[in-house]
Amino acid sequence: MKTKEFIVTAIIIVVLLLCKFVLPKPIQFSPTISWIVTILLGLVFAFIFYLTIKGKPVERRIVFLLVGISLVVPFFMQFKLPLKISPEVQQVYDKLASLPPGSKVLASFDYDPPSAPELQPMAEAFVKYAFEHDIKIIMMGLWPQGPQQANQAVEAAFEENPALRDQVKYGVDYVNLGFQSGNEFVVLRMGESFKSMFPSDLNYTPYDSIPLLKNVSNFSNIDWSINFSAGKPGTVEWIQVAVDRYNLPMSAGNTAVQAPMVYPYLNAGQLLGLMGGMSGAAEFEKLTNLPGKATTFLLSQTFAHVVVILFIIIGNVAFLRSRKETK
């Protein structure tokens, strides 16, 4: 048993090192190979289906391995996927597009690196779009790591479009107020005065000496706000305090887990538009015409969903059959 584990470990290390140092990079499958790989995966599922129905369900590890493969393989494929825009995302975009140049937008980055795969693409597309359309962004975070994510989004925008680097000025076109602890109480106090909560920005520049903030004392001076949220504190807290008590117009980008909980607020008009998860991000990237990571990952995402659905179907068909037999 021990030797077997040792061999497995050794093989994994060798394969990884080979990938790192020997393999030509980057790897891309031609369409034919992509199709062949997809069909092979399908055959594996057919086999699992057969086994499960025969009453020999496969081990957990096989399931894990299959999920892993179907997430990784699409990285190297090049299928083009048509994407339909959902009304919630359209609403976010319409709101953003309707802002005249010079409008001030408050963007709260309430997430940390683990949730970045879903939210960072939205943030990047938003920042890029805002910079290109002369919309001013006031950034902040209710999560300690939020402001760093904001800076990364700005950096990504500059890398994508180097012309922006000269065009967009810190302090004039955007500002990063940083993080402040206190969850919804931060929002509550911002309702009275931003300055009381953020005496200085992330770089320790005093609030009053930042040109963009000259006329910003509280939410009443903000034209629109967007909130990228991965949990608590996040969109719900912003709605409860900033929207319900201070009438801040707000849209949100949420991790997919959070999104269903936010729909009632959307229907009630407390929230103006919602981007949910990676597919929401991909739709937003399409609308803003700034394809990024979410668009790239859409294929992997699709594969993953299909795999989970297949597992549910296989499990249930076997379950229904066995129930029929016992009857």
């Binding site: 005249p100 010079g102 409008s103 005065s193 000259k214 006329n215 004392s217 509280n218 009443s220 001076n221």
Partner: peptide, 14 residues
């Protein structure tokens, strides 16, 4: 008491 950017039509004097 305050200078504002073009496009503003509202000011809260606190």
């Amino acid at each position: 008491i305050r200078t504002l950017l073009p496009g503003e039509t509202f000011f809260s004097d606190d």
